[in-house]
Design a protein around this nucleic acid. Structure first.
Lengths: 264, 264
DNA sequence: GCACAAATGTTAATTTTCTCACATTAAATG
DNA sequence: CATTTAATGTGAGAAAATTAACATTTGTGC
């Protein structure tokens, strides 16, 4: 049996080299392949092989070595997805969802990848404040000079790129939130809204409880799915932004049909 | 007069295109030049020209468009710098400072750029917890699986990439911090430690007050400098990690000489 | 030490990205 | 509307990165 290039398993030293490079890149940043090779005392080719081996935490971008983001949260545009349907569906959902935002609003933005494209829509608006407990959302918002950012801190939970704070609930309640944009890993007509991680429940429920308007955003891969941590029902959402099968199914339900909003 | 390529001024539409792309990249990540060209409805060459124009917020890495200020992609080693003096001075200071860290420690890491390279040194250590109020530090630490991260949230202050929290002081005091790594924008033998922004004073002082050991890290460009916000004196530091002129001058002072630690 | 396999180095071919010069188009000006 | 200028497109050649093939070194068990 022949092992194809790029699918090799990593050996001991390969792992050591990559760990060393990961450390060099721990603070973020990129490393020229040539420099990295020098640093490790091996040839560029060896590093190329390390990086192309299965499960490498590094990747190569135009001769520069960078950390490969956790594929689960990869913010990098997926080429296939984009070619297949022009624009990412999450971007379209977020464009639609953001149409509810008004100047001067204070927004709650939930964790996950679904709502990250929302941030791009907020740059034009004036006097916005964004409240979030997600690191990826906070990073995105931090680039917008015109938007105030309030990050609810605490113990970092890598799996969801979010923070588990002591009294998030109290903090959220103490803020005057106009609109809460909520994500969910599972949305079920009868069973309601669920997510993977229990620490997300508290901020989600606090936002549902306190916000003047609740906007649920999810793509149709979440429809009919149940996840371990339940945090609400479909009737908790004032607006439901989704698409495809989920939008069709939700529109068929007399109770929530009026609140469904689907792009295009 | 001939205008050299890459030094052109941006025109109206060029700016619009770049803003649009910046939004697409708001959540981080990269965009293939071809995709970006499609997105903007112009040729790749036009985008190349946009990006190479003076002061563009974007840069091109191997055919991929990324935000120039994205810490994920900014080069770790400035080639010139590295060839000139081997390794970045801040990295050297941080390597020295990190030698005080012990397994199981809870560390406070101050804001600014000085202490970011410290994070790279923490990967090997076991059972560490890092407490910080700086977004850039938190991002760096978030990549280390073996280190627990506690981010003290609040209102984001872009100028210092840090958060201004309501009761940071109380939160810091409620944590058992073994070692506080402190930065300063100004260090003066008589006048003590100062920084640019007043909101930094509270967490800094709380850390000084509560930590078992206080380690001040600064490069010699800060020596003899006064900044608006004072937060302590040189005698507040148990260890002073610096170099060059600052190290020499500090070592000449009988009161603090014993606490100065300089790399090499 | 020898035989074998794995890891790494070297070189050349291939592909991709980058740059430059010039053609074309669009906007601005009188 | 003609003329000028700025902006953008196109394609060829140069440079760089990537891949593939093969040579060399290193390590391991016998």
């Amino acid at each position: 049996m022949t092992v194809r290039a790029g699918a090799n398993v990593m050996n001991q030293r390969s792992v050591q080299r990559q760990e060393r490079l990961l450390q060099a890149l721990a603070g973020g940043g990129s490393l020229r392949l040539a420099d990295a090779a020098m640093l490790c005392g091996v040839s560029e080719m060896t590093l190329r092989r390390d990086v192309s081996s299965k499960g490498s935490p590094l990747m190569l971008m135009g001769g520069h070595l960078v950390r490969r983001d956790d594929p689960h949260f990869s913010p990098v545009y997926d080429l296939e997805t984009q070619r297949d349907r022009g624009v990412d569906i999450k971007t379209r959902l977020c464009q639609r969802a953001s149409s509810y935002v008004q100047d001067g609003d204070t927004l709650f933005i939930d964790c996950g990848t679904t709502l990250v494209p929302m941030v791009a829509e907020l740059g034009q608006r004036r006097h916005l404040t964004v409240v979030t407990y997600a690191l990826n959302v906070a990073n995105a918002v931090s680039h917008l000079d015109s938007v105030r950012l309030i990050l609810l801190g605490g113990l970092y939970q890598g799996v969801s790129q979010s923070f588990d704070g002591e009294d998030v609930a109290r903090q959220i309640r103490s803020l005057g939130i106009n609109r809460a944009f909520l994500s969910a890993a599972g949305v079920h007509l009868e069973r309601g809204l669920s997510c993977f991680h229990f620490h997300e429940i508290i901020p989600k429920q606090a936002a549902i409880e306190t916000a003047a308007q609740r906007i649920l955003v999810f793509d149709d891969s979440k429809w009919g799915v149940l996840r371990p941590a339940f945090f609400g029902t479909l009737s908790d959402a004032d607006i439901i932004v989704t698409h495809g099968e989920a939008a069709a199914a939700a529109s068929a339900s007399p109770e929530i049909a009026a609140r469904v909003d689907s792009p295009r």
